[in-house]
Design a protein around this nucleic acid. Structure first.
Length: 287
DNA sequence: CCGTTAACCTGAGAGC
DNA sequence: TGCTCTCAGGTTAACG
């Protein structure tokens, strides 16, 4: 589900609520998601304070008072919900499903902070939890992913260095977290439209000016999406229970057979398949 | 190291 | 209503 702007939205909502709180109880309802949970995870969390909530790429990082870091990836359908004990209503909600219809059978983890309960729900179970003990395990997950477009080290030089020798197409490059991180299928499509780049174009064929567009619009699109609270196509909600609105700014994603948003162009948006992901673009405006 | 493909899961929606 | 099929915001193991 979530790409960088959605994860950022979730963290901005969660941080003020759970930072500084102590885990009073924790419950794990199944042995695994994508991978087995860390051994004795629930017990290892109890008594620890959430010192800080951070984001790296699409990962949520919770720094604990014991020095360890809880790493959460939401996969395709992971959501985090906050409810108050003994109350039916959600205090806050980040939901893939609609507010009322959250299927409880996919509530895999509960972390209690006194009266507040944080629930992790994930129907497809592509998400995962890790407890990072030290710098070594930290590196394992976070050191071999590329810079994200909002990182200060993400610049034209970095783009040239990591794209200009690659034979694979630019859409696959944008989705490759080892090269550039944080971008998923929605934002890859949108960034390529704004940059005027054909998703099938090979990395090594990119001209200087095209890399400049890519640099500019990968930052711009993500920033604007964060500003709009992410994209809500199947009811993604922020922690206030409100939808994001960047879906209203989609130019091409899910717009096949629509007119190209460029008014001077009379082509229709095409849908093609690139490495098993739906890809939307205008063959006239994106060369 | 590079690039491609299949696989991991459940649920919604389309078409018959 | 119900069956089958396709698709979904992500990642990675395996292979050539």
């Amino acid at each position: 589900m979530p790409e960088l702007p959605e994860v950022e939205t979730i963290i901005r909502g969660l941080a003020p609520v759970i930072e500084g709180e102590v885990v009073s109880a924790a419950k794990v309802n199944r042995p695994d998601l994508r991978w087995p949970f860390p051994k004795n995870m629930a017990n290892r969390l109890i008594g620890k304070t959430i010192k800080q909530l951070r984001r790296r790429s699409k990962y949520i990082l919770a720094d604990l008072s014991c020095g360890q870091t809880l790493l959460i990836h939401l996969g395709m359908s992971g959501t985090i919900h906050l409810i108050e004990k003994n109350k039916k209503n959600f205090k806050t909600n980040t939901s893939f499903y609609s507010f009322q219809n959250l299927p409880k059978k996919h509530n895999h983890i509960e972390i209690h902070f006194g009266n507040l309960i944080m629930i992790y729900n994930d129907p497809r179970r592509f998400g995962f939890f890790k407890l990072l003990k030290d710098k070594e395990s930290f590196k394992l997950y976070l050191n071999n992913i590329g810079y994200e477009p909002l990182d200060k080290n993400f610049n034209l030089k970095y783009l040239k260095k990591s794209i200009l020798f690659r034979k694979k197409c630019i859409k696959s490059i944008l989705l490759d977290q080892k090269i550039i991180s944080g971008i998923g299928n929605i934002y890859a499509n949108e960034i390529l439209f704004h940059s005027g780049l054909n998703p099938r174009k090979k990395g090594l064929k990119l001209k200087d000016f095209e890399l400049k567009y890519l640099y500019k619009y990968s930052k711009l699109v993500l920033k604007k999406a964060i500003l709009k609270g992410g994209s809500s196509i199947r009811d993604f909600r922020n922690t206030e229970g409100a939808k994001g609105s960047f879906q209203d700014n989609f130019k091409v994603y899910n717009k096949d057979d629509h007119n190209c948003p460029n008014k001077k162009c009379n082509y229709k948006i095409k849908k093609i398949n690139i490495s098993n992901r739906s890809t939307f673009y205008c063959e006239n405006c994106q060369k």
